[in-house]
Amino acid sequence: MTEPLSREDVSHVAKLARLRLTEEELVRYTEQLGKILVHAQDLNSLDLAGVAPTAHPFGLVNVVRQDEVHPSIDPAAVLAEAPDAEDGRFAVPRIVGEAP
């Protein structure tokens, strides 16, 4: 069986997930993820034509709440947990690129 995913795939996925991998990790993860994906080929043993996907175990619908204001939490408590804050706001290093 051919490798289900390449080192480039793993490298791309790491980038999407905001993770940095060393060369050694890249090799190791490629092998480990490959093994798992090879095992996952058994999913194709069932004929799944026409089978609907299940995203939730139970079919609850229309779970809603009333549009009523509840007290917010103390901003000081929130900002106290922030790695960096300034002027009542969360501070981050410069942003490169606009939101998609």
Partner: peptide
């Protein structure tokens, strides 16, 4: 998705919750 007020112009991070 939460009960925080939807209002414009309040002081920063005063309408927030978990």
């Amino acid at each position: 998705f939460c009960g925080c007020a939807n209002a414009f112009g309040s002081a920063p991070n005063t309408q927030v919750c978990p």
